[in-house]
């Protein structure tokens, strides 16, 4: 097991991504953040705070649970169904630029499910993808717009993101599984 990012590094990465988002999107009014459960949610909230610290603007933030859209739900008759948590998008996504936020980008299947889920809420002007770590091994044609850190990995490794809100500390680690 080795540490890829410590708390300090995660903090600076977040600020950098916030600046990139503002650089790419003129007109903050149209922006909204949607975090994918679990760890995309605190990550999205931190980005909202970082953007506020830069220009004083409050970007609305929601959370998305993609379980009902997973493509592997009904594949085998073993084990219990994954737990579903609440989706909370307390604003209309119509004609907004949605920043979809997740911790790790891997196969791309979660993002595919999230795109389908989002579209059921309306018709955004654009959807951009923000991830803290891109570990490669895509199985679908999906690419992130903002990446905290690109990490080459092998399939036998796993990348774990820990955030204070969910895990009590800020750290990204990689381990052999």
């Amino acid at each position: 097991m080795s540490v890829l990012m410590d708390a300090d590094r995660i903090g600076r990465t977040l600020t950098r991504i916030a600046h990139e988002i503002l650089e790419r999107n003129r007109g903050v009014d149209e922006l909204a953040l949607v975090g994918i459960r679990t760890r995309g949610v605190p990550f999205a909230k931190r980005l909202a705070r970082a953007i506020r610290d830069i220009n004083g603007h409050e970007v609305p933030t929601g959370s998305l649970d993609i379980t009902l859209y997973r493509d592997d739900l009904m594949r085998h008759a073993v084990g219990p169904q994954p737990v579903i948590r609440r989706t909370e998008i307390p604003f209309s996504i119509d004609d907004r630029r949605i920043l979809l936020v997740d911790d790790v980008l891997y196969t791309g299947r979660t993002i595919r499910a999230a795109l389908d889920a989002l579209i059921d809420f309306g018709r955004p002007k654009a959807i951009q993808l923000v991830v803290l770590v891109d570990r490669g091994h895509r199985e679908l044609p999906i690419k992130a717009d903002y990446v905290g850190k690109n990490v080459p990995t092998s399939l036998s490794q796993s990348v774990q993101v820990h955030l204070t809100e969910t895990d009590g500390r800020d750290e990204v680690e990689i381990r052999e599984s």
Binding site: D72, M74, H76, A77, V78, Q81, T110
Partner: peptide
């Protein structure tokens, strides 16, 4: 009840 898998989808 449709109960099924736990295949990781990261």
């Amino acid at each position: 009840l449709a109960g099924e898998p736990e295949e990781a989808l990261n």
